[in-house]
Amino acid sequence: MKENEIQHITSFREHFSTYVSLVILTIMTVAVSVFGADLLSLTVLTAMAIATTKAVVVGYYFMHLKYDPMIYRLLVGIVMLLFVVFMILTIFDYVFR
């Protein structure tokens, strides 16, 4: 329908800085795991927090969500929320057994 919509072109530079930040986050998560063993259960949370940050960065910059119409971010958000609720409701059963 709208073949000639103006497209946003992400610069090479932006892609490269995204990449660098992702690699730094990867190093961080490995470091926390290998050297931060005394943090115990906190390490799981840190690992998941870092992974989620990475996923958001990939989605936002590489997958172009930052420049897409609002509806895409909304849909991704709803789907993620749905999945998190699936996990919470399921684990709720096991926590109280």
Partner: peptide, 20 residues
Amino acid sequence: YFVWGHHMFTSGMSGPARII
């Protein structure tokens, strides 16, 4: 999406989960 557990009331699921 959030009501599936009502098929499992007698399966041995935990009490609080059943109530929710």
